[in-house]
Simulated scan of single mutants.
Amino acid sequence: MADLHETFTEFNRIIALSSTKKNELRTSRNSIRKDIETYFDKNRDKHTVKFKGQGSFAMNTTILPISGEYDVDDGVYIFGKEEDKPTPNTAHNWIFKAVENRTNQETIDKNTCVRVQYAKSYHVDLPIYYKTTDTDNENFFDSEDIPELAHKTKGWIESDPYAFKKWFDEKAKDKNQLKRIVRYLKAWTDNKSHLNLPSGMVFTILAVNNYVSKDRDDESFLETLQGIQKSIDDTRHIWAKYECYRPTVDTLENLLDKYSSETRKKDFLDALNSLITSGKQAVEVKSKKDACAKWQKHIGDRFPCSSINEKDEDVAKAFASPDLLRYDNKSA
Rank of each mutant, 00 (worst) to 15 (best):
K266C: 08
A91S: 12
S261R: 11
L225P: 09
D169W: 00
F96P: 01
D314R: 12
L17N: 01
E82S: 14
S278M: 12
N210D: 05
K166Q: 15
V283K: 07
N139F: 08
L269P: 08
K266H: 13
D270G: 08
L185F: 15
N309R: 14
I308H: 06
R29E: 10
E253L: 13
K280V: 15
I157K: 14
K81S: 15
P247E: 01
A293K: 07
I95S: 00
I36H: 02
D270K: 14
Y118G: 02
G75R: 03
I238G: 00
N89Q: 15
L178K: 03
E69P: 00
I146K: 12
T153E: 15
K22N: 07
G155S: 10
V72P: 05
A316S: 08
S321M: 10
D73N: 13
F51H: 04
S121C: 00
S121D: 10
I181R: 08
E313V: 11
D160M: 06
K34Y: 03
K81P: 06
A98P: 03
K266D: 10
E24G: 01
L222P: 14
F40Q: 03
Y39V: 05
K294G: 00
S307K: 13
C113H: 07
L255D: 02
T107S: 09
L197H: 08
K173C: 02
K311P: 00
D136E: 01
H237W: 15
D250I: 01
F8K: 13
L195S: 02
L197C: 08
K173H: 09
N101Y: 11
